[in-house]
Design a protein around this nucleic acid. Structure first.
Length: 671
RNA sequence: GCGCCCAUAGCUCAGCUGGAUAGAGCAACGGACUUCUAAUCCGUAGGUCGGUGGUUCGAAUCCACCUGGGCGUGCCA
């Protein structure tokens, strides 16, 4: 049940008598700012009073008189300048809880306007190791897919793989020059990965040598700037007349300058490391000397692949499945699946047609030899064909859009892609109209950058991004340290075997990583702090998972005490509204939290913000913990108290489990 | 230069189309374990929401400017 939506509807009806635009005001329903005001409040009467030229409090009184709402709440109060405060009736809460108990979907309605929605997410480059930067698109995209599907939309997930780019040129070059066909055939996945690494290392070596002088210049500038800023900050800090705020600000600015300096310093260190790694290895040094033109050669191999060169095409066909195996292993572990995996290569044949169509529509202009589309409101054009005839990702995106329009006939497409590409998407979306696809709602679900603990992008010593798999392993290993804490294990009855421990560690570790990502607003950058997210306390997935495990533990104990085999079914069959008596504040607070589940889901969907669902689950788990502390279930002889609390425990377990599932996070029956 | 995003407690972050006294987690401090699992709970302390103006009955939220930061910026994706 979506309480806000229900109240909106009732207010809409009541407001009809006062304004011809009730929808503008009916939406001004909020969860009460303070529990002492009740459960919900309407803020509509202040602006409405102004609009119709009446005192807000008088308007509020009229609205309250017109409201037909007595089945849901007590008579609303008018307070302050014209707030309407709403306190839900206990009978209403009780009957809603009973409904939720009897509903597979824990009271979450399906949407009245189901749409067909394509969600384009994850989209890594195959053949390159997945790194921490891939996690956001994958995790956010998966959570949105699950959530939209749960509310009844027809969701089509599509992993738009980068399977046609330079990285294949790298592998092909590596295979031709350094590969042993027998070794690769025997053990393709690691061998191809190692050929990629070797060839890429040679490329990076060349780039590193070329970039070093410029980096050193930048370093000198950054250093003097950092020193100036630091001196300025120190001067302000020792100035007695400066306010704390000014001091803080100066320090912040100096820290930023320092961070920029450190960042360049570490870039130089990693650049030098790249060079040294090759120079200090006789074999690599010889290869580097022998393959001085790798960067250009790799592009030639890529171009040959695109032109249909038989040998490269055959190699690509041979290698691609193995590259997919590699990324699928990670998806399996993350529990992420796709309906389609239509990579860039899938659209290759359609690209000339896209350019031709745009030409026919008269949208293109030749500029410096490239085929461009100049769009109103943009300084730079969208380039759809390079001077050398090659196509770009813009071309592929347009071909993909046409395909999705024709084949999927979808209403909406979500692109879960890094916010740094927002300008590209603005241009791309602007072209949908001229191409006759204004019927599809196109959304760039953008997200911020993942930073390391120090506020800089996470890198290894040699400057490459940290592999995703090692992060997953790390999180699981740390989760296991906690799960297998001897003190906790000793309390487990029956004892927890090795297999169960490993399984819990996996669920907890994956949950920690996913939740850390999802609980931040997607548009903000966030710091990937392994220590914090596997700290397993506070606002983490583990807190919710632990709450769930406690509900299950209680249910097992009650089942035993009452001699009932299936306690969830039993409560479903043996409960009616009068059985739910919310006498304790903790019981009432938990009941309301549970009832708000649908509202939380709707909020998370409205702006594609899974963090709202995270916040909700955390609030609910907190309400449960408070309840758990204050209200014992076991040992109650009063059947009403027992049933009330049992119902709340059952529902808490189901809401948390379902909510986490929508986020792609699992639970364990005990931990 | 131009464009987009950001600035909230010591730290990491929420704050829903403007609403009542700005919230959480962590860290700090004080309490609660013969536990329906203390991975917990209860409490205390901590903020001039970067600055200055403006719109409004009301601004962290909207507008303008300023300062500081991040990202992007015609043939990578």
């Amino acid at each position: 049940m979506n309480l806000s939506a229900l109240l909106r509807k009732r207010f809409h009806a009541a407001l009809n008598e006062l304004t011809d635009q009730p929808e503008d005001f009916a939406g001004m329903i909020r969860v009460a700012a303070d529990p002492k005001f009740g459960d919900y409040q309407s803020n509509a009467c202040m602006p409405l009073g102004k609009k119709i030229g009446q005192a807000p409090r008088d308007v509020a009184t009229k609205v309250v008189d017109a409201l037909q709402i007595e089945d849901v709440c007590e008579t609303p109060d008018v307070a302050g300048p014209g707030f309407i405060n709403i306190k839900l009736r206990d009978e209403f809460l009780s009957s809603t809880i009973v409904e939720m108990i009897g509903d597979e979907r824990v009271g979450v309605a399906t949407t009245e306007q189901p749409e067909k929605i394509v969600i384009d997410y994850s989209s890594p480059n195959v053949a390159k190791p997945m790194h921490v930067g891939h996690i956001r698109s994958t995790v956010i995209g998966h959570a949105l897919s699950e959530t939209l599907r749960f509310v009844g939309h027809e969701v089509i997930t599509d992993n738009h793989l980068g399977d046609w780019g330079t990285q294949f040129g790298i592998i092909i070059y590596g295979y031709k020059h350094f590969g042993d066909p027998d070794v690769v055939a025997a053990n393709p996945v690691p061998e191809l990965a190692s050929l990629y690494r070797l060839t890429n290392q040679l490329i990076e070596y060349q780039k590193a040598k070329a970039s070093l002088p410029q980096l050193n210049t930048k370093l000198a500038e950054a250093e003097s700037h950092a020193e100036t800023e630091d001196a300025a900050a120190k001067a302000i800090e020792s100035d007695e007349k400066a306010t704390a705020k000014e001091k803080k600000k100066a320090r912040k600015s100096a820290d930023a300058a320092r961070r920029r300096f450190e960042s360049i310093k570490s870039d130089i260190a990693s650049t030098q490391a790249k060079i040294a790694d090759v120079d200090n290895d006789a074999k690599l040094a010889a290869l580097a000397a022998e393959h001085e033109d790798v960067p250009a050669a790799v592009l030639r191999e890529t171009a040959k692949l695109h032109e249909g060169d038989a040998e490269n095409r055959a190699l690509w066909e041979k290698f691609l499945p193995h590259c997919k195996d590699e990324i699928n292993r990670i998806y399996d572990r993350l529990g992420v699946t796709f309906d389609h995996t239509l990579g860039e290569s899938f659209y290759h044949d359609r690209l000339p047609g896209v350019v031709e169509m745009l030409n026919k529509l008269g949208l293109t202009t030749k500029s410096d030899g490239a085929v461009c589309v100049f769009l109103d409101g943009f300084d730079s054009p969208m380039i759809i064909q390079k001077r050398d005839g090659a196509f770009l990702y813009a071309t592929t995106d347009l071909a993909t859009l046409q395909y999705r329009n024709e084949v999927f006939q979808c209403d909406r497409i979500l692109y879960v892609v890094d916010s740094r590409q927002s300008e590209h998407f603005e241009k791309f979306f602007a072209m949908a109209g001229p191409l006759g696809m204004e019927n599809i709602e196109l959304v760039h679900v953008s997200f911020g950058t993942v930073l390391g603990k120090d506020g800089r992008p996470m890198k290894t010593r040699s400057g490459s991004l940290i592999g995703l798999e090692s992060l997953l392993d790390d999180a699981v290993a740390r989760a296991k340290d906690v799960v297998c804490n001897p003190e906790r294990l000793s309390n487990m009855s029956p004892p927890m075997g090795e297999e169960e421990q490993n399984q819990i560690a996996e669920v907890v570790g994956m949950g920690a990583i996913k939740y850390a990502d999802l609980s931040h607003h997607r548009t903000s950058d966030y710091r990937f702090d392994v220590d914090k997210m596997v700290a397993l306390e506070g606002n983490t997935a583990t807190y919710m998972q632990y709450s769930y495990a406690r509900t299950q533990s209680i249910l097992r104990r009650v089942a035993e005490e009452q001699g009932i085999a299936d306690i969830e079914s039993w409560i479903g069959e043996n409960i009616s509204t009068p059985d739910i008596q919310l006498r304790e504040p903790a019981e009432r607070a938990l009941a309301i939290a549970l009832i708000r589940f649908e509202e939380a889901i709707d909020n998370a969907i409205a702006a594609y913000t899974p963090n709202q669902l995270c916040d909700y689950l955390f609030d609910t788990a907190k309400a449960y913990s408070t309840f758990n502390d204050a209200c014992r279930v076991l040992g109650n002889t009063d059947p009403t108290i027992l049933k009330t609390r049992l119902a709340l425990v059952v529902l808490t377990g189901r809401v948390i489990k379902q909510g986490l599932k929508l986020l792609g996070i699992g639970v364990c029956d005990r931990m």
